[in-house]
Design a protein around this nucleic acid. Structure first.
Lengths: 356, 356
DNA sequence: GTTTCGTTTGACAGCGCTGTCAGATTGCTG
DNA sequence: CAGCAATCTGACAGCGCTGTCAAACGAAAC
């Protein structure tokens, strides 16, 4: 019990005024126990008498002890680092929420979050991810859309035996952590709203084909038409790529039609903004002559004029859940529900109006 | 030379198929040198014969050796982690660029970037930063605006002896890394543009008083007026806070004036968007009846209608420089120019027009 | 009072790397 | 060719923590 620290831990009384950080030895000495017991208490391991636990905790507090992460990792093989691999797209408000949600869970849980932006498409994506995972020694990875949609990414992570949580509508193995929201239902509701407003010719701008959400949103649109006995017209559907310009271009083609739609549903807000822009360029009043709706409720949607009718996803919550489930898994606790669905909410603003 | 690895490093031939990662011992054995020599080569230390160096490098390649970061940190006291403390504001495109710029430099240099969002104002900011720095064991910190403007933050970091690079117009100690752009000059140019377009009554919406950029931008506005012999009218200046709503409100008050301005210069794009929104609500044509200019050239500024005349800062480059100079400092190389100024660029779009 | 078994605690050996310092080698000078 | 400094290389001791395993302890069972 006495010869702790015989190796001269705190010998170095350098000029630096900052007192040397307390180590596990200091705490052990202070509490009158062995370092192993301190380790047990700090790591919330069982089989420590309550009285001992309290004593140690007191010392921890008194010395402001904080475990050294590097030593922990070296010794215990756990880095407590989670990677966040995302597409480095222009639209960022989605990612902002993802960052905040994930960070908010990681920090209190003692995990660090490491960012890894990727520019898609990327032929070397596998190498890059492999390198990231190795270099950054991440224990697990969060995969916000559309990263989780990419077939290779999930497979690679699985092969590397790195647990991951994917935020994506893609169907996944039942034991994989998957967070998504009911894009299809939300799209259905939004389309239904337009139908109830009297619109019959409703244009639809599809999202990027590589994003799982695109198909779901399109499916919701079609189901709504069907439910309301409106014939599906392929000419009213255009391919977009989730960006402003493609939304604008698709809108242009829709408006050039002999019988243009009286409403356009864009698969995301960026494209909806492009639609509004195009309408304005053509002198069309929104929503007077053309109703426009988007998807995502980016910060954006209340900044433009008119404020956008759109669909809000609980991104922050979704990211929180993804991080939480992933951490559970890393900590060896079986996730309660590896596959979690969230509800979207239609937000009605001024860019849509009854057909008159 | 023989008894390397006597401690049985690779004894564990567990069921896991992944081959055990090569350690410095493996490389040493393979190259027929001591681990210390491998360490020297890997860390690019001097005093290794070229021939030896080549031999080691070859083994490193053959075994795909990657140093264990935790061991390095534990032993060498270097974490190779840089913190990025930022205000968790709604406007994110600025941060997107900061992240990308910093990340792009950190990664090739072997550094990780750890995020720490903070919601301002925050009475416990000092504790939070202290905890972040300790827990995350960051070696250095990047401080994008407005973090670098906060008087307490820089002082705290200095006290903790954590090197930092501040992206802020605030005047700093000459040996502190400071990255900024000439806000004042850009504001001057932008104001001058409006004056040249015939505007005389030019409204100005100030930025958040805690942001260093606010004062600079205002100063540029005043200097331009002075240069062109236009009297400064305090009634044309309103306080904003860099957010959409404050921009909108300030614009409302400006337009309520008996003699409203024919142009409004907002200290950032968000407020300019608010100004455009307000103008539209009042049925004022932009730029026909009111010219509006912003600042920052967010992604936003080409999405709204009309596209915004604004000022573009080379954020990515600024963040890159901040990270690069910080890493230089951490690596013991004296930064070339700790205080670096970048040029802004006025981007003329459609929200401003000659007064007719 | 003793045995038994589960609970609590501690000693100690690494984890993979770098810093220190001493020893080996090389290149010059006289 | 000795003598000496400059250059290279290696042995070894940690860095602070966790995993392993054995010892100590305590309560229940005999």
């Amino acid at each position: 019990m006495e010869s702790l620290r015989e190796s001269g831990h705190k010998m170095k009384q350098k000029s630096k005024p900052a007192r040397p950080k307390a180590t596990i030895f200091d705490v052990a000495e202070h509490a009158g126990v062995s370092i192993k017991t301190v380790s047990r208490v700090v790591n919330k391991e069982p089989n420590v008498r309550q009285q001992t636990r309290d004593k140690v905790l007191e010392s921890v507090g008194a010395l402001r002890y904080q475990p050294n992460a590097a030593a922990r990792e070296l010794s215990g093989k756990r880095s407590r680092i989670i990677g966040l691999i995302y597409e480095n797209a222009e639209e960022f408000s989605y990612l902002n929420d993802v960052f905040n949600g994930a960070l908010g869970i990681c920090e209190p849980a003692g995990f660090s979050l490491l960012l890894r932006p990727l520019t898609l498409p990327d032929p070397d994506i596998a190498d890059r991810i492999r390198q990231f995972a190795t270099n950054a020694r991440v224990e697990g990875v969060v995969l916000p859309a559309p990263m989780g949609d990419l077939p290779g990414v999930a497979a690679l992570l699985r092969e590397m035996r790195i647990p991951f949580a994917a935020i994506t509508p893609r169907e996944a193995d039942p034991d994989e952590i998957n967070i998504h929201c009911n894009d299809e239902a939300a799209s259905f509701s939004l389309t239904e709203l337009l139908i109830e407003q009297g619109h019959r010719a409703i244009g639809f701008i599809k999202g990027h084909p590589d994003h799982g959400a695109s198909a779901k949103r399109f499916a919701g649109y079609r189901r709504a038409l069907k439910t309301h006995w409106i014939a599906y017209a392929p000419r009213l559907v255009r391919q977009g790529y989730f960006d402003f310009d493609s939304g604008r271009a698709a809108t242009g083609r829709l408006l050039d039609l002999a019988e243009p739609p009286s409403a356009i549903l864009a698969s995301n807000d960026d494209m909806a903004a492009g639609a509004i822009f195009e309408a304005r360029e053509r002198g069309l009043a929104v929503p007077g002559e053309l109703s426009i709706a988007g998807f995502d409720d980016t910060r954006f949607s209340t900044r433009i004029w008119p404020p956008l009718t759109t669909v809000r996803q609980p991104i922050i919550q979704m990211a929180q859940t993804a991080a939480a489930l992933l951490i559970d898994k890393l900590n060896g606790r079986a996730p309660a529900a590896p596959r979690t669905t969230f509800e979207c909410e239609v937000v009605i603003r001024d860019s849509t109006a009854p057909l008159c």
